[in-house]
Design a protein around this nucleic acid. Structure first.
Length: 557
RNA sequence: GCGCCCGUAGCUCAGUGGACAGAGCGGCGGCCUUCUAAGCCGCUGGUCGCCCGUUCGAAUCGGGCCGGGCGCGCCA
């Protein structure tokens, strides 16, 4: 590609200048940027300013030296030094024509790369406790984790999506859920029931109880109301709950490769083995009847309990065994997408890994911030107690999958996200999802119309692209040229929200082109073919972009 | 009290050390006998929370304040 060639030329110039003794050796990587104004050129390089200090010369003087050593090349039409010392390059227009051709030839693989080839990454996300339906609060990680996985795949990694089910026998919340399910089942059977103080009182538990009764019959009433009974009901309830979760995830368009059961690590001895290993490493001690891990020696603020006074293992114990389990499965890198309520435990897990002799850097914890629903500028209060939590299912039924995904992905995970229900419901120009999808429908429509009028659309790569010279055409082509770098950046930064902004931007660039450049014109068949090629290329990139977001690209609206 | 995140246009937010800080929504005014007007064009709009520092250059990096959100359990 043109930018890579340009980098080589600049590098050659620097080496030549260095050999000639005009400039000192430079270890700084050269970077190309897009100038803020198109009149400034196609690419801009700041190397002269970076080198000004080591060279002990003024930036513009350094730039002149570099230009003196720049090899001749047909690619470059014009070079100038601008502002404080930028070197601005204007390339021959053919480079953009090549981009259009490349998009058409590579199709859905345009923008992909092999940066991550040969590396296996696991992305674990959502992992909400299997004690109730997914709701808006814990759903943010869904589209996010999925889109990050898509991005990593696009840059060549082998990716697995995993959902961790916190269903261990020592899990207090899970047992509480079991007791709650049991209480509801007994109520339905007319038996004396005991809903725990901090039990799960949502109506959905009654639905779960009904389902269980339908599936297993009245014999459920004979299960004892004790710890064993609670756990039995927790496992029964989990089946119903997980089916429910999978169902809403299907509505969201998220599919996991792997559902990992915490309980399995207890049953096959991995938890105990990990505990023994830690004893052997001398990083544990007993105090107040509990077993503690010396995490303070590895950067944590305080030591953490692994085995409680009552003999039950803590979540940290499971987390540490879980890391081993993941690594044993051959992953090179582990990404955890966690909700804000788990942010505080990141240092403990990292310290725990270090204590266990595992390199904490193989893990990457991404903590997203909360989601609030707003309606008419006011925050929709969500309370578990009052049952006003909005489930993911309800949200999707209300505004649809595409809008749900797009909205949840449109902000940086570091920012709190206000989900504007009113805007989300609008099927109009105010809604950014429809704006982007409309651009795709419009592209499809143009191609349909062209075929109807007798234009072939399957050999557009052979069109005479040199006819594309209108400023809005050039702008669109330039946009397509930058796309691969944007995907690469978004993947590296785990920032799918960039894709949402890009899709908006591409749609706007296309709509603008559409407004000034008539595509189908029987009077000018060659120009029409060139423009159809550009339209088709824009459609491909828009489709790729929406694909990464997991948002559909409609043929018509 | 401690930790994490945020503070940029009326609102919601982009902006990986670079050139006059961007977008959407909102507001005002234009554009359909022509490929989808769910569109386009123009106008309106800013002490990048404040102060110091690092740098040729800071919305961006560091320190200190101020404001807001979320956490801080032998629950997860």
């Amino acid at each position: 590609m043109a930018d890579a060639q340009l980098l080589e030329l600049i590098d050659a110039a620097l080496r030549a200048a260095c050999d000639a003794g005009d400039l000192p050796a430079c270890e700084t990587g050269i970077r190309l940027e897009q100038p803020p104004q198109p009149e400034m050129g196609d690419f801009s390089c700041n190397i002269a300013m970076v080198m000004a200090k080591p060279a002990q010369k003024a930036p513009r003087e350094v730039a002149e030296i570099i230009l003196r050593h720049l090899p001749q090349c047909a690619l470059i039409d014009n070079v100038e030094i601008a502002g404080p010392g930028f070197i601005n390059f204007r390339l021959s227009p053919t480079w953009l024509q090549e981009v259009v051709r490349e998009v058409l030839v590579r199709g859905e693989r345009y923008g992909h790369s092999d940066e991550g080839a040969g590396k296996r990454v696991q992305v674990e996300f959502i992992s909400a406790n299997p004690v109730g339906p997914l709701h808006v609060g814990n759903a943010r990680g869904g589209p996010y984790g999925d889109a990050v996985a898509n991005l990593l795949e696009a840059v060549g990694y082998e990716v697995e999506r995993e959902y961790l089910l916190n269903d261990g026998p020592d899990n207090t919340q899970f047992r509480l859920f079991g007791a709650s399910v049991q209480a509801r089942v007994r109520e339905l059977l007319g038996l004396p029931a005991h809903m725990p103080e901090d039990g799960y009182r949502g109506d959905y538990v009654i639905d779960y109880a009904r389902e269980l009764l339908a599936a297993h019959g009245e014999g459920l009433g004979e299960i004892a109301e004790d710890e064993d009974g609670f756990f039995e009901f927790a496992i029964l309830g989990e089946e119903v709950c997980v089916a429910d979760i999978r169902d809403s995830l299907e509505m969201l368009g998220v599919e996991f490769d792997s559902w990992f059961s915490e309980r399995a690590m207890f049953e096959d001895g991995e938890i105990d083995a990990k505990l023994d290993e830690l004893w052997g490493r001398g990083v544990l001690y007993q105090q107040d009847g509990a077993v503690w891990l010396r995490t303070t020696e590895f950067g944590d603020e305080e030591d953490r309990v692994l085995v409680r006074q009552n003999g039950a293992k803590t979540y940290l114990m499971s987390d540490l065994a879980y890391v081993d389990n993941k690594l044993a499965r051959g992953f090179d890198h582990l990404i955890y997408v966690w909700g804000p309520d788990h942010a505080a435990q990141v240092p403990s897990v990292k310290a725990g890994m270090a204590a266990a002799g595992v390199d904490p850097d193989v893990t990457e914890f991404i903590v997203h911030q909360i989601v609030r629903l707003t309606e008419g500028g006011r925050v929709v209060r969500m309370s578990k107690r009052q049952g006003t939590i909005v489930s993911l299912r309800e949200l999707i039924e209300d505004v649809g999958r595409d809008v749900t995904r797009f909205f949840l992905l449109s902000r940086s995970v570091d920012s709190h996200l206000d989900f504007d229900l009113e805007l989300a419901r609008k099927e109009s120009e105010e809604n950014p999802v429809y704006y982007v999808q409309y651009a795709h429908a419009r592209i499809s429509s143009i191609l349909r119309e062209a075929r109807q009028r007798g234009f072939a659309t399957d050999d557009l790569a052979e069109a005479d692209l040199s006819l594309l010279a209108h400023p809005d055409e050039l702008r669109l082509m330039r946009w397509l040229a930058d796309y691969p770098a944007e995907v690469s950046d978004a993947a590296a930064q785990r920032a799918p929200h960039r894709l949402a902004h890009l899709s908006r931007d591409l749609a706007a660039t296309f709509h603008q082109f559409y407004g000034t450049c008539r595509v189908i014109d029987e009077e000018a068949p060659e120009l029409s073919r060139a423009r159809l090629a550009l339209v088709s290329a824009a459609g491909i990139v828009l489709r790729n972009l929406l694909g990464l977001l997991g948002v559909s690209a409609p043929e018509q609206m």
